[in-house]
Amino acid sequence: MEYFLQQLINGITLGAIYGLIAIGYTMVYGIIGMINFAHGDIYMLGAFFALIAYLAATTMGGGSVAFGLMAALLATMLFTSLWGWAVERLAYRPLRGAPRLAPLISAIGMSIVLQNFTQLTQGARVKPLQPVIHGGVTLLKANGFAVSLSWLQITIVLVTVALMLVFTWVITRTPLGRAQRATEQDMKMAALLGVNVDRVISTTFVIGAALASVAGLMVTLYYGVIDFYIGFLAGIKAFTAAVLGGIGSLPGAMLGGLAIGLIEALWSGYFSIEYKDVAAFSILVLVLLFRPSGLLGRPEVEKI
């Protein structure tokens, strides 16, 4: 029971991170119907930017952790968004209206570019960061096993929830969100009605990148190690989460992220760590077979 609770906490933390990345996939897929393969690497950039900004800020700010973290958060959101924007502008926008697979290949190419660019500039070795946020609370202690909840885990979940609230508000309540939803449903019609579709799509990439960068920061703090390759697996899993939750659905992305996080944590807790990725994918296949539109996705009825 205690062990289960601990895995549950770990799973939720992990799930929050996957969920934040998954939003970028699900939004982009919803709006232009493409798998943004480079999104995982955008998240990886976010992690690197966060690490660099944290180190720069703590050196300049005299080692204040709080200042460092705030600076890291802002800097990584800013720079990662810029990269997200640039990737869309350079590699995807010219391909609007091209055959369906062209942007996918372009995205795969971009993903390779980002990985190797990072490897070239920062080296292939794993980058470690000493734990920044220490301590936590012990929830309960029984049978010689303590269930602990670290401050960092609390922070991660709280930040995720806060971001989700802001984000939901933006999508449902603001003109930007309305334009975004209109473009998602019918790009041509939205353009005819005066929505600047290019700008809406750019904004989608920027938002997605910003959320992924926060995930990158949190992973840097949570695991304490990053390298240029972390984007690939995290990206696949986040995309899996998006599909699992129902691609195009924002709450679905969050739910899917949680599900993947929990599956992974529980599977590695009870069965085997080696096969945890297999577990996540198997669940995905099962869900898609019985509910092809994902958990919260609207079933697509093809009009005949």
Binding site: L90, P94, I105, S106, M110, I112, Q115
Partner: peptide, 16 residues
């Protein structure tokens, strides 16, 4: 290393 970077960039450019 440059090889893979160029490979990725080539994919993007050829697609464009």
């Amino acid at each position: 290393q440059y090889r893979m970077l160029a490979f990725g960039a080539a994919l993007v450019l050829i697609m464009l």
